[in-house]
Protein backbone atom coordinates (compact mmCIF):
# COMPACT_ATOMS: atom_id res chain seq x y z
CA UNK A 1 0.00 0.00 0.00
CA UNK A 2 1.03 3.59 -0.66
CA UNK A 3 0.02 6.78 1.19
CA UNK A 4 -1.90 7.79 -1.95
CA UNK A 5 -4.09 4.73 -1.54
CA UNK A 6 -5.55 5.80 1.79
CA UNK A 7 -9.15 7.04 1.52
CA UNK A 8 -10.37 8.84 4.64
CA UNK A 9 -12.38 11.80 3.50
CA UNK A 10 -13.66 12.70 0.05
CA UNK A 11 -15.20 16.05 -0.70
CA UNK A 12 -16.57 17.75 -3.76
CA UNK A 13 -19.62 18.87 -5.64
CA UNK A 14 -22.31 16.29 -6.25
CA UNK A 15 -24.03 15.14 -9.42
CA UNK A 16 -27.49 13.63 -8.77
CA UNK A 17 -28.76 10.74 -10.89
CA UNK A 18 -32.35 9.64 -10.27
CA UNK A 19 -33.77 6.14 -10.68
CA UNK A 20 -33.35 2.68 -9.17
CA UNK A 21 -31.79 -0.48 -10.61
CA UNK A 22 -29.52 1.37 -13.03
CA UNK A 23 -27.50 -1.45 -14.56
CA UNK A 24 -23.90 -1.46 -15.73
CA UNK A 25 -25.01 -1.80 -19.38
CA UNK A 26 -26.47 1.69 -18.97
CA UNK A 27 -23.37 3.04 -17.23
CA UNK A 28 -21.21 1.77 -20.09
CA UNK A 29 -22.87 -0.05 -23.03
CA UNK A 30 -21.21 -3.32 -24.07
CA UNK A 31 -19.96 -2.01 -27.40
CA UNK A 32 -17.42 0.14 -25.52
CA UNK A 33 -15.98 -2.96 -23.84
CA UNK A 34 -14.41 -3.93 -27.13
CA UNK A 35 -10.92 -2.91 -26.07
CA UNK A 36 -7.98 -4.38 -24.25
CA UNK A 37 -7.63 -1.35 -21.94
CA UNK A 38 -9.92 0.92 -19.91
CA UNK A 39 -8.63 4.02 -21.72
CA UNK A 40 -11.16 6.52 -23.01
CA UNK A 41 -14.17 4.99 -21.25
CA UNK A 42 -15.02 8.33 -19.62
CA UNK A 43 -16.16 9.69 -22.99
CA UNK A 44 -18.90 7.06 -23.16
CA UNK A 45 -20.24 6.99 -19.61
CA UNK A 46 -24.08 6.73 -19.78
CA UNK A 47 -23.73 7.30 -23.53
CA UNK A 48 -27.12 5.89 -24.63
CA UNK A 49 -29.03 7.51 -21.76
CA UNK A 50 -27.34 10.85 -22.52
CA UNK A 51 -28.33 10.67 -26.18
CA UNK A 52 -31.91 9.79 -25.33
CA UNK A 53 -32.20 12.34 -22.51
CA UNK A 54 -30.53 15.63 -23.47
CA UNK A 55 -30.99 16.95 -19.92
CA UNK A 56 -29.19 13.91 -18.40
CA UNK A 57 -27.14 15.17 -15.42
CA UNK A 58 -23.87 14.12 -17.10
CA UNK A 59 -24.76 16.46 -20.01
CA UNK A 60 -25.40 19.50 -17.82
CA UNK A 61 -22.64 22.13 -17.72
CA UNK A 62 -23.36 22.89 -14.04
CA UNK A 63 -22.40 19.33 -13.04
CA UNK A 64 -19.10 19.19 -14.92
CA UNK A 65 -16.27 18.80 -12.44
CA UNK A 66 -18.52 17.14 -9.86
CA UNK A 67 -16.83 14.28 -7.98
CA UNK A 68 -19.60 12.75 -5.85
CA UNK A 69 -22.28 10.74 -7.65
CA UNK A 70 -25.72 10.47 -6.01
CA UNK A 71 -27.77 7.42 -7.01
CA UNK A 72 -30.85 5.44 -5.92
CA UNK A 73 -31.34 1.76 -5.06
CA UNK A 74 -29.39 -1.23 -6.42
CA UNK A 75 -27.08 0.97 -8.47
CA UNK A 76 -24.73 -0.97 -10.77
CA UNK A 77 -26.78 -4.16 -11.06
CA UNK A 78 -26.22 -6.62 -13.88
CA UNK A 79 -22.92 -7.26 -15.61
CA UNK A 80 -19.71 -7.51 -13.55
CA UNK A 81 -17.83 -5.24 -15.98
CA UNK A 82 -15.30 -3.16 -14.06
CA UNK A 83 -15.50 -0.88 -17.09
CA UNK A 84 -18.51 0.71 -15.31
CA UNK A 85 -16.70 1.99 -12.20
CA UNK A 86 -13.65 2.75 -14.37
CA UNK A 87 -15.77 4.89 -16.71
CA UNK A 88 -17.15 6.80 -13.70
CA UNK A 89 -13.73 7.18 -12.08
CA UNK A 90 -12.13 8.37 -15.30
CA UNK A 91 -14.98 10.87 -15.77
CA UNK A 92 -13.97 12.29 -12.38
CA UNK A 93 -16.17 10.53 -9.84
CA UNK A 94 -14.33 9.92 -6.53
CA UNK A 95 -17.18 8.67 -4.33
CA UNK A 96 -20.76 7.39 -4.74
CA UNK A 97 -23.66 7.89 -2.35
CA UNK A 98 -26.90 5.97 -2.82
CA UNK A 99 -29.61 4.01 -1.13
CA UNK A 100 -28.04 0.65 -2.05
CA UNK A 101 -25.54 -0.92 -4.44
CA UNK A 102 -25.37 -4.15 -6.39
CA UNK A 103 -22.83 -6.44 -4.81
CA UNK A 104 -20.35 -7.01 -7.64
CA UNK A 105 -20.41 -3.30 -8.55
CA UNK A 106 -19.75 -2.35 -4.92
CA UNK A 107 -16.78 -4.75 -4.83
CA UNK A 108 -15.41 -3.46 -8.12
CA UNK A 109 -15.65 0.15 -6.93
CA UNK A 110 -13.88 -0.69 -3.68
CA UNK A 111 -11.18 -2.56 -5.63
CA UNK A 112 -10.31 0.63 -7.53
CA UNK A 113 -10.49 2.84 -4.43
CA UNK A 114 -13.91 4.32 -5.20
CA UNK A 115 -16.01 4.32 -1.99
CA UNK A 116 -19.78 3.62 -2.15
CA UNK A 117 -21.75 4.85 0.87
CA UNK A 118 -25.39 4.02 1.53
CA UNK A 119 -27.85 6.40 3.20
CA UNK A 120 -31.40 5.76 4.37
CA UNK A 121 -34.02 7.02 1.93
CA UNK A 122 -34.96 10.04 4.05
CA UNK A 123 -31.39 11.31 4.36
CA UNK A 124 -30.73 10.61 0.69
CA UNK A 125 -33.82 12.65 -0.28
CA UNK A 126 -32.61 15.52 1.93
CA UNK A 127 -29.16 15.34 0.35
CA UNK A 128 -30.67 15.37 -3.16
CA UNK A 129 -32.83 18.35 -2.24
CA UNK A 130 -29.83 20.22 -0.88
CA UNK A 131 -27.77 19.49 -4.01
CA UNK A 132 -30.65 20.59 -6.26
CA UNK A 133 -30.79 23.92 -4.41
CA UNK A 134 -27.04 24.36 -3.97
CA UNK A 135 -25.23 22.57 -6.80
CA UNK A 136 -22.08 24.57 -6.03
CA UNK A 137 -21.77 23.47 -2.39
CA UNK A 138 -19.34 20.78 -1.44
CA UNK A 139 -20.42 17.66 0.37
CA UNK A 140 -18.09 15.45 2.38
CA UNK A 141 -17.91 11.65 2.61
CA UNK A 142 -16.19 10.76 5.86
CA UNK A 143 -15.22 7.09 5.71
CA UNK A 144 -13.63 7.09 9.11
CA UNK A 145 -16.77 8.26 10.92
CA UNK A 146 -19.14 6.75 8.33
CA UNK A 147 -21.07 9.96 7.84
CA UNK A 148 -21.96 12.20 4.93
CA UNK A 149 -21.77 15.93 5.69
CA UNK A 150 -23.81 18.51 3.79
CA UNK A 151 -25.32 21.83 4.73
CA UNK A 152 -25.19 21.73 8.53
CA UNK A 153 -26.00 18.03 8.72
CA UNK A 154 -24.02 14.91 9.51
CA UNK A 155 -26.00 11.89 8.35
CA UNK A 156 -24.98 8.30 9.15
CA UNK A 157 -23.79 6.24 6.18
CA UNK A 158 -23.55 2.50 5.76
CA UNK A 159 -20.21 1.12 4.59
CA UNK A 160 -19.30 -2.48 5.38
CA UNK A 161 -16.39 -2.97 7.80
CA UNK A 162 -14.32 -4.87 5.23
CA UNK A 163 -14.58 -2.23 2.52
CA UNK A 164 -14.14 0.64 4.99
CA UNK A 165 -11.00 -0.91 6.41
CA UNK A 166 -9.56 -1.63 2.96
CA UNK A 167 -10.10 2.02 2.01
CA UNK A 168 -8.76 3.40 5.31
CA UNK A 169 -5.71 1.13 5.39
CA UNK A 170 -5.13 1.52 1.65
CA UNK A 171 -5.33 -2.19 0.80
CA UNK A 172 -8.22 -1.95 -1.68
CA UNK A 173 -5.78 -3.15 -4.32
CA UNK A 174 -5.75 -6.51 -2.53
CA UNK A 175 -3.01 -8.28 -4.45
CA UNK A 176 -0.20 -7.24 -2.11
CA UNK A 177 -1.92 -8.19 1.13
CA UNK A 178 -3.16 -11.50 -0.35
CA UNK A 179 0.37 -12.39 -1.44
CA UNK A 180 1.67 -11.96 2.09
CA UNK A 181 0.06 -15.27 3.07
CA UNK A 182 2.22 -17.31 0.70
CA UNK A 183 2.58 -20.34 2.98
CA UNK A 184 -1.03 -20.38 4.13
CA UNK A 185 -2.16 -20.33 0.49
CA UNK A 186 -0.09 -23.43 -0.18
CA UNK A 187 -1.39 -25.09 2.98
CA UNK A 188 -5.02 -24.60 1.89
CA UNK A 189 -4.24 -25.75 -1.66
CA UNK A 190 -2.66 -28.94 -0.29
CA UNK A 191 -5.69 -29.61 1.92
CA UNK A 192 -8.18 -29.62 -0.95
CA UNK A 193 -8.74 -33.05 -2.53
CA UNK A 194 -9.57 -31.65 -5.94
CA UNK A 195 -6.25 -29.77 -6.01
CA UNK A 196 -4.08 -32.66 -4.86
CA UNK A 197 -6.04 -35.30 -6.80
CA UNK A 198 -8.96 -37.20 -5.25
Amino acid sequence: MRPDDIRRRISGRAIPLSGNDIDTDRIIPARFLKSITFEGLEAHVFEDDRRQMPDHPFNQPRHQGATILLVGQNFGCGSSREHAPEALRRWGIRGIVGESFAEIFFGNCTAIGLPCLALNSGDLARLNKFVAQHPDHEIVLDLEDRVVRFDTRNVPALLSDGARNQLLIGTWNATGVLLEAENEIDRVARSLPYVTGY
Binding site: G162, V188, L192
Partner: peptide, 12 residues
Amino acid sequence: VRTLPSGQTQLF
Protein backbone atom coordinates in the same frame (compact mmCIF):
# COMPACT_ATOMS: atom_id res chain seq x y z
CA VAL B 1 -6.67 -18.96 4.10
CA ARG B 2 -6.84 -16.40 6.90
CA THR B 3 -8.62 -13.32 8.21
CA LEU B 4 -7.27 -10.21 6.50
CA PRO B 5 -6.35 -6.97 8.31
CA SER B 6 -9.57 -5.51 6.84
CA GLY B 7 -11.58 -8.19 8.65
CA GLN B 8 -12.49 -9.89 5.37
CA THR B 9 -11.68 -13.51 4.60
CA GLN B 10 -8.81 -14.44 2.32
CA LEU B 11 -10.56 -17.14 0.33
CA PHE B 12 -8.73 -19.67 -1.86
